[in-house]
Amino acid sequence: MRLKSFHAKSMSEAMRMVRQALGDDAIIVATREEEGGGVRVTAAVEEDDLVMASARAPHHAPPKPIIVEEPEIDVGEVVADVLHRHGVPAALSEQLIDAAASLDTDDPQLALGAALDSMFTFSPLHDKRTGNKPLILVGPPGGGKTLVVAKLAAQAVFKKRKVGVITTDTVRAGGMEQLAAFTRLMKIKLATVEDPDALAGAFEVNRGCDVVLVDTAGRNPYDREEMADLKALLAAGVAEPILVLPAGMDALEAADIAQSFKALGVRRMLITRLDMARRLGSLLGTAHRARMAFCNASVSSKVAEGLTPLNPMAFARLMMPPEAKAARAAAKTSPSKTKAVRSSSSRTIP
C-alpha cells in the first residue's frame, strides 16, 4: 500500500490533489487542520491499483465487476438535516448543501466542513497571518466583551507574554471593577481611558507589550450618538476592532447588528455563549450577510477555559458533535441489504 500526504488551503482542494496523484481508488486515512492554516490529508492506495490504472489501455478487457457496498448514508440528506435543525436561512442552506454534495466523501462532518470552508472565512486571533496588532473588543451590551478580554489576557500570561489591558468602559456600573479584579489576579496593570486622545496615549504606554487588549462599553447599534462615539475611538486605526456577538440571537437581528459594526470597519466576529446555544444557524446567516470572518469562540464562562480558534472543521463539529455522528452511525442501513454492483473504476474517495 502506498501512503501520501497532501497539504492544501481547503479540503476540496486537497481532495482534488489526492485524485490527481493517486486516482479514484484512493482512500482517506487521516485529515487534520494545520496550525499555520489549511488542511493536511493522508491518503492510501494499493500498489496494484496504481499499476492497473497506468497499464490499462483500450484493447485490454475491462476489469471484472466487484461487489462493493453503496454508501450507507446520504451525505446530502444528513447535511440538509443538520442545517435545518440549526435554523440556517433557506437560501444559504441550499448553497451549503450544493457545496457539500460536490465533495466525494461519505463523512457528513467532513462534507459540512468543506462546504463551510468554501463559503466562509476563518481567521483566528493572534494567528501568524494576522499578526499581533492591538485588539479593541466592540459589540452590543451584554455580549461578553469583558470576559473575552480576561480570557485573552489569561491565555497570553500563560504563554509568558507581556500583556497590556485598557478599558474605556467607565459608564457601566461595575464594568471597570470586574475587569480590574481579573487583571489584579493576573498581575496586569489596567489603564482606564475616557476619550480617543487618552486611548492613543494608553497605546503608547503599552507599545512594548506583546498583546494589547481594549475593553469597551456596549454600544446600541441603532443609536447614532453611541456609534459615533465608538467611531471616534476607532479613528486612530492603531487597534483592530473585533465584534463580540453572543450565540442564540435571532438571525435577522444579529445580522443587522453585525452590519452596523461592519460600517465602522469591523471585519472579524468573535462568538460568545456557545455553551448556552444549541442552534447556530443565526451565526452563519450573520457572517454571510455582513461578510465577516469568524475568528474565535467562547464556550464557557470560566476565564481559565480560554477561547477556541474557529476553522471550518471546528465549526462543523459544533454543528454535528461526535455524539450526533455516533447516533447516525448506529442508524445506518443494515449490511444485509442488497449490495450494488460496480466496476472498480467507479469507486469514490471516502
Rank of each mutant, 00 (worst) to 15 (best):
R2A: 10
L3Q: 08
S5K: 13
S5C: 04
H7K: 11
A8I: 14
A8S: 15
A14K: 09
R16C: 04
R19N: 05
A21N: 12
A21P: 04
A26E: 08
G38D: 08
V39T: 12
R40Q: 15
V45D: 14
L50W: 01
A57I: 06
H59A: 10
A61P: 09
I66R: 14
P71N: 11
G76V: 11
L92K: 05
L92H: 14
E94I: 00
A100E: 14
T105L: 14
T105I: 10
A115F: 08
F120C: 08
P124L: 06
H126C: 04
T130F: 01
P134I: 03
P140G: 10
G144N: 09
G144Q: 09
L147V: 10
Q155M: 15
T168K: 01
D169S: 06
T170G: 09
R172E: 11
M186I: 06
K189P: 02
A191I: 00
V193Y: 02
E204Y: 04
D210S: 12
D210K: 05
V212Y: 02
N220Q: 11
D229C: 06
A235V: 00
A239D: 00
I257Y: 11
S260W: 01
V266C: 13
R267D: 13
M276C: 08
M276L: 15
R279L: 07
G285R: 03
T286D: 00
S298A: 15
V303N: 08
E305I: 14
F315E: 01
M320N: 07
K325D: 00
P335C: 04
T348V: 12
P350F: 03
